[in-house]
Design a protein around this nucleic acid. Sequence first.
RNA 1: GGCCCGUUCGUCUAGGGGUUAGGACGUUAGAUUUUCAUUCUAGAAACAGGGGUUCGAUUCCCCUACGGGCUACCA
Length: 498
Amino acid sequence: MRFAPSPTGGLHLGGVRTALFNYLFAKQHGGDFILRVEDTDQTRFVPGAEEYINDCLDWCGILPDESPSKPAAFGPYRQSERKASYRRFAEELIESGYAYYAFDTAEELEEQRKVHPNFRYSHENRLNLRNSLSFNTEQTNSLLAAGTPHTIRIKIPTEQTVYFEDMIRGAVTFDTNLIDDKVLLKADGMPTYHLAVVVDDKAMEISHVFRGEEWLPSAPVHILLWEYLGWKEQMPNWAHLPLILKPDGKGKLSKRDGDRLGFPVYAMNWTDPKTGDLTKGFRETGFLPEAFVNMLATLGWNDGTEKELFTMAELIAAFSVERISKAGAKYDFEKAKWYNHEWMKATPNAELLPQVEAIFKQHELELPSQPYLNDILSLVKERMTFVEDFWQQASFFFVQPEELDLNAIKGKWNADKTAFFEELTAEFESLSQWNAEDLGAFFKEKVASSGMKIGELMMPFRIMLVGGKFGPDVFKIAELLGKKGVIDRVAYALGLLQ
RNA sequence: GGCCCGUUCGUCUAGGGGUUAGGACGUUAGAUUUUCAUUCUAGAAACAGGGGUUCGAUUCCCCUACGGGCUACCA
């Protein structure tokens, strides 16, 4: 068995999900995994896209089979390199009466659409248009001999019902009277997607096609093509996946929605080589690949239990195409963040540390020692949704805050409090133990003997160390900051309070 | 307009002829944390509508409505 995710899979959330489902299915059934990259239209082909898609899938942990049973000869194919082959099959269809040459220019057809708003190139009007069905053999041959630009169109039959069994939707039927004669080969000699998928899937011996629901209406054309080319027996199974929709409003999720609503829609940063526009990726937004994959897999699929957190191995074991839902899903970035938070907590520090260290580079700071960093990460990890949050949560450990939120304490400040902190730090000097527990006990004892309330002194202490009303346990912070750090910060704050 | 696909809390979904219609995100309240966040507990919140079939429909069938997709020499 071989599997092929949709052609542009990798760029967009939906595309990555298609590839993921494809991968899970292939892993379960022992199939090779092929990434099918198609560049049917050279003007649309984007340099670097193929490598980018591979990098995205690699980051997600979706990897082509390392030892495919039939490697080189089985693609992935570049359509621009296989022009002759597509032409040959298109002409074969003409010979067998399933297709025809069409000489109408794009402009002529456009004109038709202006006059007849519901214009379709079909059995209803094909004999009134300029093609090898309405012309006699002589006319056609002379046009061909003169090198007249032309397309090749499929001749859709009348009065037939195309039926197929979709792995997700079950029986789907189409009335051929309502299907138009799609272009198979364009005037420039390149195939359209319709011809290309069929020819390539045959050549690659694809057994299962996973693609988005937007392809459902063209499925009958593909099925007819498999039949007319004489390959009916080898036709793959189809699975049309539900679409991922905009969180608000209407329609499919697009990369513009991400920009507009402030979340990524691509797996990784992508810079369009033509426009230079950057589209932000989940990786660069701070998502862990495990969380990204988990979030994608549970968008439109579940295992029937209440389990929501899955590793890749668990997904491979639990996945089934039948349990993919049929309806489109509005994308919810809040839930995506929750997945990342859960995975952040589940990921060992050692794996997070390299990314945390990168933050120090960004801020051009000297890297603290690993054990120290590790302790701090443990302390703030569960408060973080993204690795980037580390800075917001813990930067005060490494940089003494210059701006302190003094407003919170200034109003009630008095000489007694100044005295309290001066004495406190003096006594710190002689403390032999320096850990959160002892510090807390010492602090409380000291407060009690001062006659003041603990609530009046805890907050000032926190603000002196952290700079604001946030952060983990004060004494934990004090412990990690070290004796000298604490004494310095209290002195600094006292100076500001004078 | 035509065709195809779909429709359970705001969102993602479980369920499936007889259920207190379950979970998660979000939200609200309370507890913990003498901060903030986390965490915990509790609450509000859904079967699109109408016809059948049936003793009984959220579940099966039909219609309508709504949503989405496609309707290019784009994929």
